[in-house]
Write a protein that binds this DNA or RNA. Structure first.
Lengths: 214, 214
DNA sequence: GGTTGAATTACACAGTCGTATAACAAGATT
DNA sequence: AATCTTGTTATACGACTGTGTAATTCAACC
């Protein structure tokens, strides 16, 4: 008889985390079709059966993985705000640049995000996850816009946030899918200019790159 | 013996067209995984083997289908320009609105588009198709911007086109994925305002909805 | 109106899919 | 050190995947 594969018992959290990471890895590399239970288990260093021990179904794992992905993207965008300048204009400018630069703007991240779009439209639970995270991002942006030294109505503030979010998303998308179609730094520069034009402020001048990094 | 399924011989063009349409249909409904050779054949009213008679592989069919999809989206956007007003501002305004409204901005179309993003990143042939169509759209937009009564440098023209394309793409995306998150007509209005702000022209005033329709 | 060529169907094949269930073994408890 | 719990592996199952090949039948041609 062939001997059984040796194994270590791990905490539930650790195992779930590993499986989620493996699933996202595979989706990024080969799209949804590549994330099979066997491939995921293999990547996570376990056997396929274990997935059903931590997730009620593959669909369940998919939802959790998507949630994790969205969560991480927001965290990455927000990270630039911590320890940055106090000036409202500078904060917005830094946020805009961060949202269309790495690690947020990354071919892998976009591929990952796109892979789930269909499920978002089809599955209610997935759509709820998407809506919550989309609004979280937009509200973060809206708060930064509201802090600017200008006075506008609430309705205008909402429109501005949607518009700026649109530019950012669009540039994020194009810059990530076709990075070779743009010069280095071109997308962030355009993002600053156009968001500034929409809000009628000079964001280019306000931009203060992080000087604590080399 | 069970009798053989009766069939009609069709032109090559017709059969290829039917198979492409069936494939896109299925991807729209159930994502890439749903577009199996059997499902496609069934939807097109033929047997699976026929697919391999018209396409060298399933991958081949996928590429052709993606090409067709992109082609159609550009045609839909450009359609608004024909028979429209002569005024450059009005033409641009109409184009912008059309690009973020139906049938271009449609949940199904976005799901379809997103389903192919991963392949675009991975497959050279797919990326070529994407690049060509992305640039075709952007150049169309750039030509409309260039016709405006204002004088800017070529570099600025390029930046403006990328920025406007970004807003349009971003709003197209958000409005299509989460249509219920926006009021009726909100996205087109925001698109006109923000593209106008970027180009420093009043597009809202210039917008002339098609009066030949009810 | 047979004959012929090609469009179409039918079938087979080896893999892979997600899932269900039973056997095992690692580590805590006693 | 013996026992118990349960995390983990192993294996089986039916359905489905893309593809290759042979058999058929339509429609055009002479």
């Amino acid at each position: 008889m062939a001997d059984r594969r040796p194994y270590r018992r791990e905490s539930e959290e650790r195992r779930r985390e590993d499986l989620i990471a493996a699933a996202l890895d595979l989706v990024a590399e080969g799209g949804i079709p590549a994330a099979t239970v066997r491939a995921i288990a293999d990547r996570a260093g376990v056997t396929p059966g274990l997935i059903r021990h931590y997730f009620t179904s593959k669909e369940d794992l998919t939802r959790v993985a998507y949630h994790r992905l969205m969560e991480q993207m927001i965290i990455d965008s927000a990270a630039v705000l911590q320890g940055g300048p106090d000036d409202a204009m500078a904060r917005l400018a830094n946020f805009v640049v961060a949202s269309v630069s790495g690690p947020v703007a990354d071919p892998v991240a976009v591929g990952l995000w796109a892979a789930f779009v269909h499920d978002v439209r089809r599955d209610t639970a997935m759509r709820d996850i998407h809506t919550a995270n989309y609004l979280a991002f937009r509200n973060m942006l809206q708060a930064l816009i509201a802090a600017l030294p200008r006075s506008v109505s609430d309705a205008k503030l909402r429109s501005d946030a949607i518009a700026c979010n649109g530019v950012i998303d669009g540039l994020w998308l194009e810059g990530s899918i076709l990075p070779e179609a743009f010069a280095l730094g071109e997308i962030p520069a355009i993002a600053l200019t156009s968001v500034g034009a929409i809000l009628n402020v000079d964001l280019v001048a306000a931009y203060q790159p992080d000087r604590t990094l080399p």
